[in-house]
Amino acid sequence: MRQLGRFYLIAILLFLYTPIAVMMAMGFNESPLYELPFTFSTRWYEALLSNQPLLKAGANSIIIALITAVIATTLGTMASVALSRRTFRGKSLLQLLLLPPIAIPWLITGTAMLIFFYWSGIGRGMHALLIGHVALAIPYVVLVVGTGFKTVRADLEEAAMSLGSTPVHAFFSVTLPLLYPSILGAALFAFAVSLDQFVISYFLATPGYTTLPVQIYSAIRKGFTPEINAISTLLLLGSMAVILIFARFAKPGDTRDKR
């Protein structure tokens, strides 16, 4: 029975990873029409270096993800302080209001943003993408930092205050250092959410300002070469690295008391 279970899990992993591996391998195959037999070549990666639209879209993606991570982490951590440490009326309603960005299909949120941004004059482009990406990342930040708060005892801050520290000083010198792995984890998570976001970006991008996933999507629909495999491979490895570092920092299941 135990053997069967392990065999099954290996089959599941094969199912999950085979297409990805095939896609990555094809980026190193000489033939522009994905013909086999396989001939190793780095020509598609070399071609990437001179593909300005893709490179620009890639740079846009990284910049947007960095800014999103900074803004979403700052705002989300502030909200998390209030939601984790304060008691006030309407708290559960506010917590409920964090769900729509995660729970409503992005197609609906994305088209709604398109309508509102057009109608209100905000328009499309980089700033519109930022507004959307930060909104999608904030709930995750509140969640990750909120989990972090459960491991930091509230009485440490009270002790600091009773020793003459101001509330702000107590937070920055006692709670924040203990919370920093969660905050860093939340920032990485926000970065990954933004880097992989496609649907919202698709509706808010302009011909002059796109992100990598939007560019890949239009390439898939209009005809493409293994260059797309090459850039997809880089994107995939990039976000996998970010998530592995996140798992290292945030340890989502770890609720041990940090003293």
């Binding site: 705002l75 502030m78 304060r86 209001l97 960005p101 309508i115």
Partner: peptide, 26 residues
């Protein structure tokens, strides 16, 4: 408490809640 919460919920209002209301109107 309000100062801590306002940025997040202000942002969500502009990015999520107002867009959904506008879409309802449309």
């Amino acid at each position: 408490t309000t100062a801590l919460l306002l940025p997040t919920y202000g942002w969500l209002t502009i990015a999520i809640f107002l867009p959904l209301l506008t879409m309802l109107a449309f």
